[in-house]
Design a binder for these strands. Sequence first.
DNA 1: TAATTTCTGGATCGATTAATATGGAAGTCT
DNA 2: AGACTTCCATATTAATCGATCCAGAAATTA
Lengths: 218, 218
Amino acid sequence: MARTGRPREFDRDKAIDAATALFWAHGYEPTSLTQLKASMGHISPASFYAAFGSKEALFREVVQHYLATYGQVMAPLWDESLPPREAIERTLRGSARMQAARTHPTGCLVVSGASNCSPENEPVQALLAAERQRTRAGIKACVERAIARNELKASPSTDILPNILATFFHGMTCEARDGMTVDTLDAAITSLLTLWDINTVKPLKNRQKNTENTGVRL
Amino acid sequence: MARTGRPREFDRDKAIDAATALFWAHGYEPTSLTQLKASMGHISPASFYAAFGSKEALFREVVQHYLATYGQVMAPLWDESLPPREAIERTLRGSARMQAARTHPTGCLVVSGASNCSPENEPVQALLAAERQRTRAGIKACVERAIARNELKASPSTDILPNILATFFHGMTCEARDGMTVDTLDAAITSLLTLWDINTVKPLKNRQKNTENTGVRL
DNA sequence: TAATTTCTGGATCGATTAATATGGAAGTCT
DNA sequence: AGACTTCCATATTAATCGATCCAGAAATTA
């Protein structure tokens, strides 16, 4: 769009990165414009508003950027070329590794990015809530696909499986932020997936071997 | 202590109740002094500070009050007169029912009460983090007690069981706040506890009957 | 009644919030 | 070169933040 005129002096992409780190670590409301501008190289208010519009608009950009990068650990959920169980397992293990990493704030931005909000910022909360709902739908679709492929038997305990997985998944944010390591989370995932395996149509004695050679992305 | 002088005109206990509802719904930082004072009957700043000292001191009182009332759903964890599995089950079901109830804000105050915090309020975050750690210790103690009583076999998958339960437990806050009903959470708990049962020393064929006649408190 | 204590309302503190306005320098395009 | 666009830095907006202070009213006890 902007092709003429004086070019911006700060790197917009790096600014988004810096804003992501701040919002991720402290949440939407506690992150002040002063902090944001400082993290972008002490840019002026005018530069900030010209580049991003508002704090909320910046946050929405940050969320999109997060989903397009870190959030890609959940991509297997919608990859229908993967066996459903592997899609779930890759998502869980990838998320565990991402959320517990020390190279950025721990936990998931979508879960904890706006969990404490004033009523006037309810739209921000709704944005993340919608994204979490998308995750639940993805998990549910995997389980239903497994049933359709005759890999899981249809039963009440299979019906509730997506809810268990979603609850555990969202709980990882709290655990990671409280210091749980990736190894511990990974071991928990291995054990949790037993709940999947005991609902398979033909239980294999050595099914647990599957959990070792499934790669983890990112 | 205060026996003479003009008595306070507002009900301090009701004020704590009102503050609990606000902090629970919006979190520590987004809840302003103005809101707090208004919820206590539009009391004056002087009355507020005379009665509570500061916003942070009030929050600490609120947390104690929360733990002594709503938080008592976790009491079974430290009740050694209960069989360990029943202690865990009562805690999970009681928490699910409490967190999903519509008579107060959903979710758990200890999990979401200060999840978005500025660095200067780190002590508030630490207060809740310590309480969460106490919960994890309680869950772990139950599992270890079950092993000591020869009700669970010692194994790697038993070792990780407390972490799975804690992650699920803390995830319930996110699910409840996003609208998951108590019935759904309850069904998920029933299925999750299968992970306990498959690690029992002598697996009973009709173990699942146990999940029906265990009472739920509060 | 007198003395004491603690309440109340209102004004106010400095700091910080997100957002806007202004004026001029800097760089791009024709 | 000249026109144009967009940048930057500095001030400043009104509102709100948590917290403090003071004067006077009110209720207790002696």
